[in-house]
Nucleic acid binder design. Structure first.
Lengths: 145, 145
DNA sequence: CGTTGTTAGTTACAAAAACAACTATTACCT
DNA sequence: AGGTAATAGTTGTTTTTGTAACTAACAACG
């Protein structure tokens, strides 16, 4: 007969992290999905290109820790929808350079603005110091410390 | 030409939360997957039953915020593998009561132990106070505040 | 009763993710 | 050079998830 124990799922950090991640991703997901029909992988690729400028799929993979097949398919869809262009590297013809089109850049700017506002809203529940500490802890947990 | 901006994905809380959640879930996932061939949904159902004793699928759904189809399938698989038994409620024959078998209970105890140790390891990177604050913040962000 | 609305749980189908195998190109090594 | 290994990216196949529609049982109201 299992007895009601004190240590619950609700104390388990991976669980808490997942719940918080899911909940906080939801509202924003509506935006990039609703406005641009994007998936999360696509939004991430877009963001990386908007942030860092021209990149290859490999570089995106290194920074984002997304699997290369995910990236490949995201790039495909973004390119079909004219959010980015792909140009082969002449020195190494295996890889290609990805650049946002003006439509891609516009989408990036729009979504980024929404992201910043959304983040501000999340942060508003806490003090500046708490948020700073949260970020540090999350980075550490994510292995990006 | 997109310029390198200061506010990056790495500051975006939903992103950070996702990364931290993914990273921190990974090692533990190996365990329930490797030892018992379970999926995360199955592990969660198992945990709920281990924690609270007999429950219906609906009750699990209320506590876990998992969609009922996920629970339905998790219950099916756990039952096939003899980790739990299902018995119809005689007063309301739509619902059924789920109970861990001894194998289920053993798996729960084993995994729970691993979970606690794992959690302790994660926590060891921080001070007690930091961890306490992290939990509070995550609960709030998860809407479980 | 009996018709209409709810609820617990399942099933079927579509979307997305995971994993493995593949192509094309470049690097290395003798 | 010539063969083997490594790398960038793609494609195919299988799992898992999400969504919607479904069945069976109950509730409530006339």
């Amino acid at each position: 007969m299992p007895q009601k124990d004190t240590y619950g799922l609700l104390d388990f950090l991976p669980y808490l992290l997942n719940q918080a991640a899911e909940e906080s991703s939801l509202a924003f997901q509506e935006v990039y999905k609703g406005r641009y029909g994007m998936l999360r992988t696509e939004w991430r690729v877009l963001f990386h290109l908007g942030m860092y400028g021209q990149m290859t799929a490999k570089e995106i993979g290194e920074r984002s820790r997304m699997h290369k097949t995910k990236i490949s398919r995201a790039v495909q869809r973004l390119s079909e929808r004219r959010f980015l262009t792909r140009t082969r590297d002449d020195k190494d013809r295996r890889s290609e350079h990805l650049d946002l089109t003006s439509a891609g850049l516009a989408a990036y700017r729009d979504l980024r603005k929404v992201a910043e506002d959304y983040d501000a809203k999340l942060e508003s529940q806490f003090t500046r110091g708490e948020v700073a500490m949260l970020r540090v802890m999350l980075r550490r947990l994510a292995g990006m410390g």
